[in-house]
Amino acid sequence: MSDIPLYRPADVTTEARPARIVITSVILILTALLLLAPLAAVFAEALRDGLGASLAALNTPDAWAAIRLTLLISVIAVPLNAAIGLAAAWAIAKFDFRGKAILISLIDLPFSVSPVVAGLSLVLLFGSSGWFGAWLSAHDLRVVFAVPGILLATLFVTFPFVARELIPVMSEQGRSEEEAALTLGATGWYMFRTVTLPNVRWALLYGVLLCNARAMGEFGAVAVISGKIRGQTTTMPILIEMLYNEYLSVAAFSMAALLAALALLTLLLKSLMEWRHADLLAATRRH
């Protein structure tokens, strides 16, 4: 009897064990080299001369100005983006109208435009020779090479982040709960605050988290429009480039380590949300 092979159904839907081990090892080594090594390099280079040197490099007026500016941009851009995303998702997910697919494509457009082209477009629109240039200078307003330009560039590159997390979730939930609230006498705002917002809160938070990571780390679009005025229009990523080009390696990597720590925190929160609240996120996020 012992020569009859045991039927094990799992075997036919996976690869042979040696193949699995080889494939997994190769993939893990490549992932370590491509993804994890750069992350480790940031911290290793930052701490090359010890923690003291690293902290001292961060404790300069330029570094503090860059940190403040990056926080300022994120504090303005992220809530604005969340509000726009909520408005967009409400109109797109809860109503039927012609041209919806085109509108969604337009919201996603910034994903397919190079950040440098985004910055260039803003310079052409708001720069001194641009469409709004004469009007802006007549009213003594500066956009290009100033904080408003950095804000606009950040809004451009992060535009789809909140909306694309909210639209699928809001569409899936339909509008029956909102209709019930209205039937029971709720006003529009009351319904939105007590029914719609709680239903999408995890998807909203998820979108805000990704939006914030991009807002604080954006480089290409901001590099074009900021003018790189030290202490005034240098965000953290821009200062990293300046320090790196001045061969101030420890200072550049210390600033980079701050942003890398933020990235790690973002990944941690993101993974926690995917594991705990998977059912309340867009379908593509539930892995």
Binding site: A83, I84, L86, A87, A88, W90, A91, I92, K94, F95, D96, L103, L106, I107, L109, P110, V113, V117, A118, L120, S121, L122, L124, L125, G130, W131, L152, L155, F156, F159, R175, E178, E179, L182, G188, F192
Partner: peptide, 28 residues
């Protein structure tokens, strides 16, 4: 649809999309 706020939501979206994305690309 009995739900309110289509005009408001669409208005905010189109205004933001125009200022932030479409007008700059138009300038290019």
């Amino acid at each position: 649809s009995p739900l309110p706020g289509f005009g408001l939501g669409m208005g905010i979206l189109l205004l933001a999309l125009s200022i932030v994305v479409l007008l700059p690309l138009g300038a290019l």
